[in-house]
């Protein structure tokens, strides 16, 4: 009896010991693994930091210049503004020919964003849920428009919108930017919609929802983040494009990016003003990027990550 007990105790002790040692080992292994991945060593931050410094240096230089007076910019190279001034920003915010550039840009970008996402939503639903005659060809054709060089379209756009008397209107630029933004929105939204199980649609239809009511009440809230990301990318690609926007506008709808080229005057370049205008164009992107940081790769990859 005693022998049996002893043996059992031994076995239990041995088991406990082995458990202890195995869990100890696995913890150790996990800890090593953690070091191995991501935080490879305590020097993991060196590469990202160097890269970010490389990225920020030119931007810092622009911001630095925007707070300097022109005489300081030209006379000596200073790493920070010795006589900080807000003169450059004051000119932009008080002179209508400057700030209207920002307003024009924002107007056509927002019009474009609304049009692109509104027409892309049903189309993306069709592509993600149904097969239909010529769907693959259509999808490919949309892609080619995203890839088309704007330079090819600059001249025909100018003539097309002249014929309709739309030159120098916001709607002309907004429509022209649909060329690349609608395909982009379709691709991104299709990516997000394919992630929603089809059973949801079927259940809703059985419950007696009509298609428009289902789409607005149930489906759109489900892909809300996708809609946000699509809006952001339409906003962004319309905001950064210049060639078409500049070709289609003369004065009334001229985007800020084109207004910026005016800084050459009789007294030479107004570098401070140019820099201040440039800094202000960075702000919209910098503001919204936080909200899409986890989706930005997906957007650039046309919804395919």
């Amino acid at each position: 009896m005693a022998g049996v007990n002893e043996r059992t105790e031994q076995a239990v002790a041995a088991q406990a010991g082995s458990q202890k040692s195995s869990s100890g080992m696995s913890q150790d292994a996990i800890a090593r693994l953690m070091r191995r991945r991501g935080e490879e060593s305590k020097w993991w931050w060196v590469v990202p930091t160097l890269y970010i410094v490389f990225l920020m240096l030119p931007i810092y230089w622009l911001i630095n210049m925007s707070f300097k007076t022109n005489s300081e910019i030209i006379s000596s190279l200073t790493l920070y503004p010795h006589e900080p001034t807000l003169r450059n920003y004051r000119i932009i915010f008080t002179d209508a020919s400057w700030y209207s550039g920002y307003i024009n840009s924002i107007i056509y970008v927002v019009i474009n964003m609304v049009i692109s996402v509104a027409v892309a939503l049903p189309a993306a639903y069709a592509f993600s849920r149904y097969r239909f005659l010529g769907d693959k060809h259509l999808f490919f054709w949309l892609l080619t428009n995203r890839m088309a060089p704007p330079a090819v379209f600059a001249l025909p756009f100018f003539q097309l919108y002249s014929a309709f008397g739309l030159i120098d209107t916001h709607i002309a630029v907004a429509l022209a930017h649909c060329l690349f933004n609608v395909p982009l929105a379709v691709w991104i939204l299709e990516g997000f919609m394919s992630g929603v199980p089809k059973e949801i649609d079927e259940t809703a239809y059985i419950d007696g929802y009509s298609f428009p009511r289902f789409f607005v009440k149930i489906f759109m809230p489900l892909i809300a983040s996708g809609i946000g990301v699509a809006c952001f990318f339409c906003f962004m690609f319309s905001w950064v494009e210049l060639l078409i926007a500049r070709t289609l506008t003369t004065t009334d709808a001229k985007p800020i990016a084109a207004v910026m080229t005016r800084t050459v005057s009789a007294s030479g370049m107004d570098w401070g003003l140019l820099a201040a205008a440039g800094v202000l164009t960075l702000i919209p992107g910098a503001l919204v990027i936080w909200f899409v940081r986890n989706y930005i790769a997906k957007g650039f990859a046309l919804g395919r990550v």
């Binding site: 890269y51 962004m236 950064v240 210049l242 990016a257 164009t281 960075l282 919209p284 992107g285 940081r293």
Partner: peptide, 8 residues
Amino acid sequence: MALPLLVP
């Protein structure tokens, strides 16, 4: 890192 991508 994404900041340069959003510069006009």
